[in-house]
Design a binder for these strands. Structure first.
Lengths: 128, 128
DNA sequence: CTGATGCGTAACTTACTGGTTACGCTTTCG
DNA sequence: CGAAAGCGTAACCAGTAAGTTACGCATCAG
């Protein structure tokens, strides 16, 4: 999802769609890039669930779907509203130094694992 | 900025940094990918202004900077809190049909231009 | 029916991004 | 001082994503 929002063209499209339902052609008119390119941007947004399209005769009308953005908003909220703030500014300072000594003795990591699991090159790219 | 947040690894890093200051090495330990790769992710985040690093002897401590995320939050807010909502669901419906007839007569577009300016392949990619 | 219009897809090119290994620099430790 | 630790950068490779042109299909108008 976040990937869909990363592209400036797509952000612009979403903004345009914020208060107007538009056909594919109307969207394309507003950009310098070719219509097929826009068409694909729309497809990405559609697959990300950020827009919904409705066939209307020989044209296709797109409209914004705000719901999925809540998820992003949630993530953002978790970040901007930190758990403890003053906390580590001094507390962790010492932990860093302590760790530094420990490491030499035991190559294992004694920190909080923060559940990283196994993440590698496969699984990285996110489509939606 | 939004581009920096698009990568899942970077999102994870930001999350980790949410309540701990961490050294580059500590961050790298939590991922399966190589340290240089993480180092570059950190650089991207740094250039995006999302983290700040402090040299501490031979190690480098990273900390989160929440401020720039407000901007993204703002954009998100504009999207999730539409101007008129019920409005166009019926009002614009007719406009679309009206436009459709007009187009034949005058190839110009009579819609709101939404200030698209000139956007093309140069300028697309956003680094920060 | 025939031509024009509106969209989407296919095929292809190009550029960037992310990963890896190799290396260099600075700081710490014995 | 010399070895190792901690980071970052350089060089390189692979995959992806965005753009373009060409084309196909459906719908609407004459």
């Amino acid at each position: 999802m976040a990937g869909a929002v990363a592209d400036p063209v797509r952000r612009e499209i979403l903004l345009m769609l914020r208060d107007e339902r538009l056909t594919a052609g109307q969207v394309a008119e507003r950009f310098a890039i070719s219509r097929p390119a826009v068409s694909r941007h729309l497809r990405v947004l559609r697959e990300a669930g950020l827009v919904r399209d409705t066939a209307d005769g020989r044209r296709r009308v797109y409209e914004l779907v705000t719901a999925p953005l809540e998820e992003l908003a949630g993530w953002l909220g978790r970040l901007t509203a930190p758990a403890g703030w003053q906390h580590h500014l001094d507390a962790l300072e010492t932990e860093v130094h302590r760790t530094r000594r420990e490491r030499r003795a035991q190559p294992e990591r004694s920190e909080k694992p923060h559940e990283p699991g196994q993440r590698a090159q496969a699984e990285q790219r996110e489509s939606a």
